Simulated assay, not measured.
Amino acid sequence: MKSMTVTELSEAFGVTRQAMNNRVKKLSEEFLDKNDKGVTVVTETGIQVLEMHYEKTVLTKEVVPEADNRPELDFDKILSQLMSDKNAEIARLSEQIVIKDHQISEKDKQLDQQQQLTAKALTEREQTLIELEEEKSKGFFARLFNK
């Protein structure tokens, strides 16, 4: 029976160790075991549950090659699948980069607007203070008759 540690699983599924650790903690106890070193491992059935969650196959069933079944073809298949998975991941990350670039652009616009409003408010405040000083410097009757 095949079992894997959190580190091995994180590498196999292409996620961080922390993300895999959080996912493994959510698994039922029936899918967990301890290896000879006392480290928690996920059993083969637990790995199959993770495969369904991540929609990725990491366990390969042992196939006894027939006489005309060449192992290098299996290697090519696996390599092709890995390349396909990596290309899909690259496409997903590229999409995320475009989204993040758009979000940064929007935040830049918001920051620029905020800076403009702050500058306008400061200018208006300074103008109001100047007007107050001018009013204070006028005499009583000048203020009374607004001259």
Rank of each mutant, 00 (worst) to 15 (best):
E30N: 14
E89R: 15
Q48H: 15
E126S: 11
L117P: 01
Q116G: 02
L82C: 00
R92Y: 10
A91E: 12
D85L: 02
I130R: 08
S28E: 15
E55S: 15
F145D: 07
P71C: 03
K107W: 03
R17W: 03
N87G: 02
I90Q: 00
L82I: 00
E29Y: 11
G38F: 05
D112V: 03
I90C: 01
L9C: 03
Q116Y: 02
V58C: 02
I90T: 06
N35W: 10
N21C: 09
L27R: 04
A142W: 06
R143M: 10
N146C: 12
E72T: 11
F31P: 07
G38V: 02
R143N: 15
T45D: 15
R23P: 04
D68T: 14
K109E: 08
L122T: 13
K34I: 14
I104G: 08
K136T: 03
A91I: 08
I47E: 02
L129D: 15
E124M: 04
N35F: 10
T118P: 00
L144M: 14
E135V: 07
L59V: 13
R92S: 14
E8A: 14
T40H: 09
K86E: 03
E124S: 02
K26G: 14
K2T: 09
T45M: 13
M52L: 15
T5S: 13
L73F: 14
H53K: 14
N69T: 08
I97M: 15
S137F: 00
N146M: 11
S28L: 15
T57E: 08
R92E: 12
D74P: 06
E124F: 01
N21G: 11
F13A: 01
Q18S: 12
K26W: 04
K109G: 12
K109Q: 13
S94D: 12
E8C: 11
L129H: 09
T16C: 09
K138A: 05
L132R: 11
